[in-house]
Simulated scan of single mutants.
Amino acid sequence: MSEGNAAAAPEALPESAQRVAGLLAGLGHDRPVVMLPATGKTSAEAAAGLGCSVAEIAKSILFRRLADDAPVLVIASGSNRVDEDKVAARVGALGKADARFVREKTGYAIGGVCPIGHRVEPLMLIDRDLFRYQSLWAAAGHPHAVFNLTPSQLQAMTGAEVADVAQDAQR
């Protein structure tokens, strides 16, 4: 973590990040929620603020399953584009999730969707490429809030299936 980022006292966090900090504490997670000085809405912005590689950002991408409007959350490496066909092959045909759908189903705004603590439990997949890294950063409920964890902790917290969800390089 770079010098400019410090763990914020829980009461100093935005309300949505306070909720995530509480969820993490309830899970026994010992790493704090960190506030970025600038937005972490994109993987590149978050990586620049944290001093890590874009690939170490565990970005949360929400889709809408067409059959039943169920939320489908894919947690992907920040350096990967999600292959919607690969995801659809596992969970069914997908549609785009607009900002209203994202907020309604997760309780978070786009750019701050956390892997845990959703209003509606999503079907969830984790990008297998994330397991190449010892340390990851995920959104903590707000576009400026993140937390650090290992790929194994991410899988344990979410119970999500680990899958190949990345577009092939030649695409």
Rank of each mutant, 00 (worst) to 15 (best):
A160Q: 08
L154E: 00
G51S: 10
L36N: 02
A76P: 10
D85H: 14
V34H: 08
V82F: 11
A17D: 01
Q170P: 05
K96V: 13
A99F: 05
A88P: 07
G107P: 06
V74T: 05
S135C: 14
L50K: 07
S60K: 00
E45P: 03
V120T: 15
L27R: 15
A70K: 10
A21K: 01
A46D: 12
A89K: 14
T158H: 13
G112I: 07
A47M: 12
S60G: 04
K59D: 11
A7C: 12
P37W: 04
I75S: 06
A8I: 00
E84D: 13
A156S: 14
A163W: 09
A156F: 09
M35N: 00
A58K: 13
H144I: 06
V82N: 07
S77F: 10
T106V: 09
H29Q: 12
V33R: 07
A7P: 07
T106G: 06
A25P: 03
N80F: 04
L149G: 00
H142M: 04
H144W: 00
Q18R: 15
A12F: 01
Y108H: 06
L66T: 10
I57C: 11
S152N: 13
G92T: 03
G78T: 10
G49P: 01
R103H: 14
A46I: 05
R128Q: 15
V54W: 11
A47D: 11
V82T: 10
V91S: 10
L36P: 03
K86M: 11
L13Q: 04
V54P: 09
L23G: 09
S2L: 14
K86Q: 14
S60H: 03
A47K: 10
G4Y: 02
G51T: 06
H118S: 12
N5S: 12
K41Y: 10
G40R: 00
M124Q: 14
Q18F: 02
G22C: 05
L123S: 13
S77W: 10
T42H: 10
R90L: 15
P71H: 01
R19A: 13
P115L: 13
G49S: 04
V162G: 03
A67K: 14
Q167N: 08
L62N: 00
D127L: 12
F63G: 01
D83S: 12
A55H: 05
A58R: 12
S60L: 03
R19V: 11
C114Y: 09
S43F: 04
I110T: 14
A67I: 04
